[in-house]
Design a protein around this nucleic acid. Sequence first.
DNA 1: GGTGAAACTTCTAATAA
DNA 2: TTATTAGAAGTTTCACC
Lengths: 159, 159
Amino acid sequence: MAKFRLDEVDHQILDMLIENTRIPFTDIAKKLLISAGTVHVRVKKLEEAGIIKGSSLTLDYQKLGYSFIAYVGIFLEKTSQTKFVLNRIHEIPYITVAHITTGKFNIFCKVRAKNTKNAKDIIFMIDDIEGVSRTETMISLEESINDKNRLMHSIFNDL
Amino acid sequence: MAKFRLDEVDHQILDMLIENTRIPFTDIAKKLLISAGTVHVRVKKLEEAGIIKGSSLTLDYQKLGYSFIAYVGIFLEKTSQTKFVLNRIHEIPYITVAHITTGKFNIFCKVRAKNTKNAKDIIFMIDDIEGVSRTETMISLEESINDKNRLMHSIFNDL
DNA sequence: GGTGAAACTTCTAATAA
DNA sequence: TTATTAGAAGTTTCACC
């Protein structure tokens, strides 16, 4: 994989798109004092290089009736079952992200549920997967996301 | 907050936008056999209702030189320090999401770092925050995201 | 609620610098 | 690499169902 070098203009284009993917390229061009064609070419290159993998909406899950977030740590009977269990995990629609981890747990995943009853069902579902010996749940009382930390100037400027 | 009711058409519009926020409204219209004007009006309503909070790019963080993900559980000396510590946490650019949790930890956050050395620095930074008594780190060896689970048909169709 | 068409804006690719 | 340009494409509004 050839290393792709991004310059300051790329960073700024990415930052604007991170904040709003539907911002017109003409607006980006105006702010950066370059032409819209240049923005177009650069974004295309970033897509071709795979730096930009896609785009997605940020939804208000609370308003959609999902006000419950939990993290579930999973202990396996044998680590050789990891892939199998991970596949089962992803069949559960309420789980969006899972990690294979070192340390305390073997697998670690995020659950978004409607309420405590719904969450309980999901956790039981995880417990029932073949190979899972036990689970440990952490319930989120409040999620706080720092969107600024997603921007390029945070990513590329060291502390 | 008046409850906003989404119908099947809203779900399908959201699903298409979740997969690609820059898909033309005319394409959505064609697929759903409605007019582009209708798509426009519905999206606007979803935005006004706050269901759509925004949009963002999905970036390949590995290609940007960030190949390290960890979750850090934080124990506080006193729970009254929660807000203070959370604010400090969000000043660290490598942390994008933090949760106030019940159970094992008081605060729980996700760290995206360049490498193990960088991660160590970040974790030490967390340890140094006033009020933090100790931390527990789980290193992710592999992250797997199930994008399908973000779609409306997963969210609204119960198991 | 939705439509369809007009007016306006943006995108995109080719050409030129 | 970047800028310009012009035709294609998309968005947005509005009068009318």
